[in-house]
Design a protein around this nucleic acid. Structure first.
Lengths: 357, 357
DNA sequence: AGAGGAAATGAAAACGTTTACAAGCGTGGG
DNA sequence: CCCACGCTTGTAAACGTTTTCATTTCCTCT
């Protein structure tokens, strides 16, 4: 007889898990009735219901989500696959995700891939079965084979555009990177700048590439700037922005404006410019991209492109839940969110006749 | 008939979940053997094992974690309860948590309480059963009754000191807030400052309170500073730091140094000082607390107290996993992590004879 | 060569839910 | 007065694993 785990155990052992059976026993009903009260799936008489509720409360019963997911085939959890956790950008995304998830009574599982596709696939494997769907902020361009197969079973929304042939097959939500970069460069040109340098993001990052594209397109479209294209490689981190700015300053003639592909690099560049004894914006203008909350507190405050970051997370979660709840019948859709140029103190017209050193 | 979404689907319908039974059938073994191969729990003959592995690979089988957790009574997931997701601080903590978790093959569930204890308890309830343990970065001082009960069943590690009578009953890992504040104030006094103002953090936040305590203690310990105590209330956000600094500047005589209880408020204060036309550090020194990565890129770089933030997360995760794996037999332990004063450009001796405005 | 084990495998019972199905039980219409 | 029918409730079968126990297989030692 294995039926009675604790012989003679009285009412409530605090350590042991309390199951639906304990509740049923205490309320003098069957486990089915308890389940019905919990889920509101079938009508239950008022008196019974409150007896059950009372028992649940007094025992501190919480349903075992594993058992539930086993039969309902849903975990009520969504997963987020992020490349990394540095900077303010990712916490904003998570904030958006969490907000929507909690509203819809989902939990949020997060993990970082560290930009490594090997481990991304491993994480995907771990998450599969723990989540009903995924939000993927992939830093890589390619969705490779192993991933694609896992993704057949788990709905996913990408947070930057999926490249190439697979684009049509996945949901994605991204910001208008190209458009944002275009308008920033046009704005700088409008101020009178011609020698506008660009600090690029990681080479295999879609967002970074689209911003680069926008920069190049705007520069090429104007006779005055066409021959002034000047680029330095960065990796979206502050330190790389610092170094890139130092390299750009060695050009002769020196650029009159620097446009960093994201704010973190812009912050690094700002430090570099000041360390070199340059005044911003009088001696050189500086602009970033993303408009993370902190840049308005820099001196000078950084001109940037406002990407609705936490909104990005929120929308991704919304969309994902829609797809999940549609049971996979939803057509993949690619959304692009508008961005907004926010001019601040770090940009101004170049000193007339400034010819660099 | 809604049973067959794709009529005529032959062997492998990509949508349907593949279970251990499918693998067993394909490999011509029993499900028990498959399980053994998966867990390495019992010896399995080489040939059989590889046949099973092959089947798993070809079917893309991933075990259902719900079913597993049902019987093993573990979810291999840990939860993090954060007050919010603003600023760089929390993403650093998450980074530390994630790193340890992934190494030990755990997943990480995160959620924000938004400082609201009602919802904190609700989240706790949601998480209970989805996680094996919790890391709680509670902004509130009190662990109230409902929470305490949930916490009896789920191991938890607090990321700031638990206040009062309950302290001994919970694991906690915190930084030496009081010591850090003490050494910062002593450092400023050592530079020759006397009128050192303090920007306080949220009133009900343990970390903030301990930092305040350190400030007051250091100020009181010195005859020269004893009567110069000057405080303004903030909430750890940049904007509140900006406003607090503005208020402090109205004091007469004006403080020669401002010490913000965290870096975010320090960043806001820096913007305020510059907006008021003050030079930092010549006219007024400024210091922060936490040493989030970004402050070294400010101009001037912010003097701060380096708290090992991501380490905090990592250690919390380590400790939690230890507690979990000990099966609840581990004695609660309170750890305090050392901090380090990092002097940078934002602090210097006061102008001799500076008598305020 | 036969027995005695060790090694490898299979059968079946759990784990805690949800839910299809059946059953109890008043009630009202024929 | 009996039957059909709602409304509520209980019974039992899933769900996909792990694990105990029993069984088979195969080797090794006398």
């Amino acid at each position: 007889m294995t039926e009675r785990p604790q012989a003679g155990a009285a009412s409530q052992d605090d350590r042991a898990e309390v199951t639906i059976h304990d509740v049923a026993r205490l309320a003098n009903v069957s486990i089915a009735t308890v389940s019905r009260v919990l889920n509101g799936s079938n009508p239950v008489k008022g008196a019974t219901s409150s007896r059950v509720l009372e028992a649940i409360e007094s025992l501190g019963y919480v349903p075992h989500s594993g058992a539930r997911s086993l039969i309902k085939k849903e975990t009520r959890t969504i997963g987020a696959l992020l490349p990394d956790m540095f900077g303010e950008f990712f916490s904003e995304v998570i904030r958006g995700l969490d907000q929507v998830a909690r509203n819809r009574r989902y939990s949020l599982l997060v993990t970082c891939t560290h930009g490594d596709m090997e481990s991304a696939e491993a994480m995907l494997r771990t998450m599969h079965g723990k989540v009903d769907g995924l939000v993927i902020l992939s830093s890589e361009l390619e969705v490779h084979a192993g991933m694609a197969r896992l993704l057949k079973r788990t709905p996913a929304v990408f947070l930057s555009q999926v490249a190439g042939s697979l684009e049509e097959r996945f949901d994605s939500i991204s910001v208008d990177n190209r458009g944002g970069a275009l308008s920033m460069v046009r704005y700088l040109i409008g101020l009178g700048h011609a020698r506008i340098a660009f600090i690029r993001g990681p080479e295999n990052n879609t967002d970074a590439l689209q911003r680069l594209e926008g920069y190049r397109e705007a520069m090429a479209a104007n006779p005055a700037t066409r021959d002034c294209v000047l680029e330095a490689q960065g990796d979206f981190g502050e330190a790389s922005g610092y170094r890139a700015a130092c390299r750009l300053l060695k050009a002769s003639p020196r650029p009159t404006a620097i446009f960093a592909a994201n704010d973190d690099m812009g912050i690094g560049a700002l430090a570099a410019l000041k360390d070199q004894g340059l005044r911003v914006p009088e001696d050189i203008s500086l602009a970033g991209f993303d408009d993370v909350p902190i840049v308005r507190y820099l001196t000078p405050a950084l001109t940037s492109i406002r990407a609705p970051i936490s909104d990005l997370g929120a929308r991704a979660a919304e969309r994902l839940l829609t797809v999940i709840e549609s049971g996979g019948s939803a057509q993949p859709r690619q959304q692009t969110l508008e961005v907004l140029l926010v001019p601040r103190g770090s940009t101004c017209p170049p000193l007339s006749g400034s010819g660099g050193q």
